[in-house]
Nucleic acid binder design. Structure first.
Lengths: 237, 237
DNA sequence: CCCGTCAATTCAGTATACAGATTTCGCCTT
DNA sequence: AAGGCGAAATCTGTATACTGAATTGACGGG
């Protein structure tokens, strides 16, 4: 109120402050604009928005309870996931997403399929241009679209939660051309299955897609371990 | 501090107040000691514990974000789940729990299996006595035990979340002798699979168990609809 | 130059206070 | 007595203040 917020473009659409801040932070996390080295301090965020600590604190606590942040004695931060954490997350995703994809294939309407097509085009162009950030953005739109087609909101939200967590650590790998091609091909296959309303194909391809994502992540890890100096690349905002 | 808490036996084990209250409420919800007609008012709970609103409020907000409560304009309450909600919850459970059961069968240690045996005995005795509350309690211990054997904490916690939500609405059905027998037989089968460390059997039986639970719930619903006067039975404390 | 100690700082957790919205309940009208 | 109007009560959301614990950094001894 006193200053225009540096945290977001415009935070002001008649919802509780807590929700606005939650959504804002959630979005920043999704797009990798907050890295593991950043420290989120409720007082600072509040001051930068010209509001009090409490709504910010409550939003941060919710993000913690959802696994998107961890609370330290010195500020809130993005968790440093271990390889085991990643494996655990992928295990859950492998159980949920194929099924949800099959549901989506059945329930997607024309508008949804059109949006999938647009997201796919963006992704293809991004890979062409080697633009990792754009690929991430297109990926997010694509996923959100087929998830939104699911009538089972609990299932969709649970998937979104875990997918976002995995996504954060994959940002790095999505910069590599090899991985980008794999992602593109996966999206092409999924889009094909969705647009044909082929639930079985969607299920199988989603399972394969997730498997590939996991594999490419751990390949990236190994490379980084064998070749440590390539492992820099800003984690911060 | 000023008064001994009516909320719990002893809330005082060197953790943040927010966690203590969260755990306390979570437990009450699990055991059905808070029904859909109760209104949870942060100010009142805080006063009864001799503390301030904020820790209580934060615990309630977390329970909302996990789906265990809903916020109204007049206090927090247990959600009234529709049949579709229940189907959605069971859909997720059917995807996750068989796999987790297989993991547990592999990883359970002797102590865990012993605890499963005890819980099973309690359940059998409860069914014998027609003691619904005791069956609920034994059920909770049984589930918690095999879930705790899972190394994938995210998977275990997600399951616990959904299972608890389903459990709340099933409290009613667990009073019926017919359902009690089904539950008992299911637990016997699961215990057998776990104690033999037979992952495949655990997986299959868990799938069957959940299917039975869903079926018996909807059978109960139909009966209640056809026969409304039997549908009373305290929901609140 | 390194290590330990102690003070200043920083931040989460908790407490208390205030504001706005909604509901409840009593009173008045008809 | 039924219905509507309005004041009081109630409860969430937000703001501000306080406290204690943990970290940082400076100072002094080895």
């Amino acid at each position: 109120m006193t200053t225009d917020s540096p945290l977001s473009s415009t935070v002001d659409r008649s919802e509780s402050l807590r929700h606005q801040i939650y959504n804002d932070l959630r979005d920043k996390l999704r797009h990798g604009r907050i890295g593991p080295d950043d420290r989120l301090i409720d007082v600072k965020i509040a001051k930068s928005l010209g509001i009090s600590r409490m709504p910010v604190r409550e939003a941060l606590l919710q993000l913690i309870s959802e696994g998107h942040l961890v609370g330290t004695t010195r500020g809130f931060a993005v968790p440093q996931l271990t390889p085991q954490d990643i494996r655990d997350i992928f295990e859950v995703r492998k159980l949920l997403e194929p099924r949800a994809a099959a549901s989506a294939a059945r329930d997607l309407d024309a508008a949804g399929i059109a949006m999938l097509g647009q997201a796919l085009e963006r992704a293809v162009a991004a890979v062409e241009a080697g633009d990792g950030e754009e690929l991430v953005a297109a990926n997010i739109v694509f996923r959100r679209t087929w998830l939104d087609a699911n009538r089972n909101r609990r299932l969709a939200e649970t998937i979104a939660r875990f997918a976002d967590q995995a996504h954060i650590v994959r940002q790095q790998t999505l910069m590599e051309p090899h991985t980008q091609v794999i992602v593109r091909d996966g999206l092409v296959g999924l889009h094909d299955a969705f647009s044909r309303r082929d639930g079985l194909a969607a299920q199988d391809r989603m399972a394969a897609f997730i498997g590939e994502a996991e594999k490419s992540y751990f390949r990236g890890i190994d490379n980084a371990a064998a070749d440590p100096q390539t492992h820099q690349e800003g984690s911060g905002r």
